[in-house]
Structure formats: structure tokens, C-alpha cells
């Protein structure tokens, strides 16, 4: 059975709104645009570095809409004291990247 994406659709809509507010170029947000948003969470930089590694699935230095949603999901988990995993759980890989 298709593994449901861990990001709920209502959360995805919220993350998409943030994504669009950061004026993506060709549907991508570069690291310098995403960095202030994630730093806003007041999480330690090494945590954010790991969040980035896990969400920048194609390691192109930019996040697309789905990768951005993964990053936001991981940040919210970390804010609720959920440790950021060392590798991306399969349920968190966006269906578009499987």
C-alpha cells in the first residue's frame, strides 16, 4: 500500500503559504532565503544543518515546495522536543521524490 506522507495536507497548505511568501524562483527557494525562516525557530544551527541535509533530498542547495514542507515538518518536530532523525524516515520522503 502506498505509504501516506507524514506531512498532513492542512500542514502542507500552511508550509506552501510560507514557501510562496518567500518568493521562490522557478519553484525553488535558495538556502539564503530559507535560512532566516529556519533560524527564526531559535533551534541550534547544528540541528538546522541536519534539518537541511534531510530536507534537501536532491542536495541541490535549494528546496522545492515538497522539500520545504519536509524542512518545516522537521523544525516543528524539533520544537516539540522530537529529536531530528539521523536519516529521513520513508514516511517523510515526499511522494514526488520516491
Amino acid at each position: 500500500a502506498e505509504l501516506a506522507w507524514a506531512v498532513k495536507s492542512e500542514d502542507k497548505a500552511k508550509y506552501d503559504a510560507i514557501f510562496d511568501s518567500l518568493s521562490p524562483v522557478d519553484g525553488f527557494l535558495s538556502g539564503d532565503k530559507v535560512k532566516p525562516v529556519l533560524l527564526n525557530s531559535k533551534l541550534p544551527v547544528e540541528i538546522l544543518g541536519r534539518v537541511w541535509e534531510l530536507s534537501d533530498i536532491d542536495h541541490d542547495g535549494k528546496l522545492d515546495r515538497d522539500e520545504f514542507a519536509v524542512a518545516m515538518f522537521l523544525v516543528y518536530c524539533a520544537l516539540e522536543k522530537e529529536p531530528v532523525p539521523m536519516s529521513l524516515p520513508p514516511a517523510l520522503v515526499p511522494p514526488s521524490k520516491r
Partner: peptide
């Protein structure tokens, strides 16, 4: 082993 992110693509490293 977690891949230590390459600073070239990671704005936090």
C-alpha cells in the same frame, strides 16, 4: 552514519 553535510549546499554549515 549521518553524512556530514557538505557546506557547499548547506547554508547552516
Amino acid at each position: 552514519q549521518f553524512p556530514t553535510g557538505s557546506s557547499s549546499t548547506n547554508p547552516f554549515l
